[in-house]
Structure formats: structure tokens, C-alpha cells
Amino acid sequence: MKVWKAIGLGLLGLTVMASCSVMGAWAVFGGFYGCTSRDEELADELRTFAILDVRRPDARQSGRRYSDCDEDDGFAVAGQYYEHTGTREELLAFYRAAAAKDGWQPDGDGRGDGLCFSKPYGTVTAHLGVWFPSSYDIAGEPPANVMEYGLEVTASHDGAAWC
């Protein structure tokens, strides 16, 4: 009887150790962290938002439209960069009006010196950011007469997205 009890306890110990190892690996390599297939699908949907095509006549696209999922924070993102030759104030006034016309509501102070808006999208809240990469990137300076800016839409099924 003592032998069977010892074997049972040994097997229980091995089972607990194996479970802890599996759970530890799960937590390190994903777990509650990162993106799900729903987030990836949401990123593809955000990529089609018409607001990402809205620009002033003196602005031109810079690069391709992108969409992805932020693995660190687990939210979907899509965006487009532009180059603009007018003033920052003109640009911000343009996007305040364009966002309002498309149903976006002002949301906080934005990203640095940019803007932030939000609106419902299905069961999630989408966030629109108008931001200036050059104000975050010390390494590269845009030409004096050209200002680079980005439009970015984020959303998350767990509510963790922001501008």
C-alpha cells in the first residue's frame, strides 16, 4: 500500500511540474500577450477605413498603406503616411473638420502635438490619430518645406487600443 501511495504522489508531482512548465512556456511565448486571429482580421478591416484616404490637396501619399497587429499591446492598427507642404495648423484644422464630418469625436490630447479621435465600429471603439513622425524620430529631419505626418486607426476587441 505504501508503494502505491509513493507512486501516486510521485506521479502527481510529475504532473504538477509538467503543468507548470507548460503554463510557463505558454506565458513566455504568448499566453494573454500578443494578437489573436480576430485582431489580425480587425487590422485588415481598419485598413479599408475611408478616413485614411482623406488628405489636403497639397498633401501626397508617402509610402504604402499598412495594417498590422501590435504584438506588445494586442491591438489592430492601420495607417498611411503623407507629406504636406502647408503649415501644421492648416493640417490640424483640416483633420478636425474631416474627422467630424466622418463621425469621429475628439478624444483626449492626441499623440504629442497631433490629434486623437474615436468612434464606435461594430462592437469595438476605433481610434484615429493624426501624428507627426518627425517629432518622434530624432535621426531624420524632413526637408524644410515638407512635413511628414501619419494617419493611424487602432482598435481592439479587449478595449486596449488608443491613439
Rank of each mutant, 00 (worst) to 15 (best):
T125G: 13
G103P: 09
G63A: 02
H84G: 05
G34F: 09
L91K: 06
E71D: 10
D73F: 09
K119D: 07
G63I: 00
L14M: 15
A99G: 09
D137L: 07
T85V: 11
S19V: 15
G129A: 12
P133G: 02
W104C: 10
G110K: 01
L128A: 12
S37N: 09
R65E: 03
A50G: 11
L91Q: 10
D137Y: 05
G103A: 14
E90T: 00
L14C: 11
Y95K: 02
E45G: 05
Q105W: 05
S21W: 11
P106I: 12
W131D: 00
D70M: 07
R60A: 10
A126E: 14
G110N: 02
E89S: 09
G79F: 00
G74F: 08
A25S: 15
E90S: 07
S21P: 00
G24C: 08
W26N: 12
F117D: 08
F32R: 09
V28K: 15
H84C: 03
G34A: 15
D58C: 00
E41L: 04
R65V: 06
R65H: 01
D72K: 08
Q61Y: 10
F32K: 10
L42Q: 02
A27T: 10
R47T: 10
E71T: 06
M23P: 03
C35K: 10
D53M: 04
Y82M: 03
L115I: 09
R64W: 03
S37C: 05
D107C: 04
L92E: 09
G63E: 02
S134C: 11
S118V: 05
L46P: 03
L14P: 13
R96G: 01
D72G: 12
S19W: 13
T15P: 03
H84M: 04
L14K: 14
T87F: 03
G74T: 00
C116A: 06
V28Q: 14
G112V: 13
Y81R: 00
A18F: 15
C69P: 00
A98S: 07
G13H: 11
V16R: 07
Q80G: 01
R55P: 00
L92H: 04
G63V: 00
A27C: 07
C116E: 03
R96S: 05
D44H: 11
Y82W: 05
R38M: 04
T87V: 00
A43I: 06
A78K: 04
D58S: 03
G86I: 03
E40Q: 05
T48N: 15
R64F: 04
D113P: 06
S134I: 12
Q105P: 11
L92Q: 13
D53Q: 09
V54N: 04
D68L: 05
H127V: 00
A126N: 07
K101C: 13
A43Q: 08
T85S: 12
R64C: 04
G79H: 00
R64E: 10
D58M: 01
D58I: 01
Y82A: 03
F32V: 12
Y81W: 06
M23T: 14
V77Q: 01
M23W: 12
E71K: 14
T123Y: 13
G112F: 05
T36V: 09
V77S: 01
T15F: 12
G13P: 13
S135L: 11
V16A: 08
T36F: 07
C116M: 10
G112E: 06
S21M: 11
R96H: 07
T125K: 14
F117N: 13
V124R: 13
F132T: 02
E83W: 02
E40V: 12
D58P: 04
L14W: 15
Q105G: 09
A43T: 06
S19N: 15
A126Y: 10
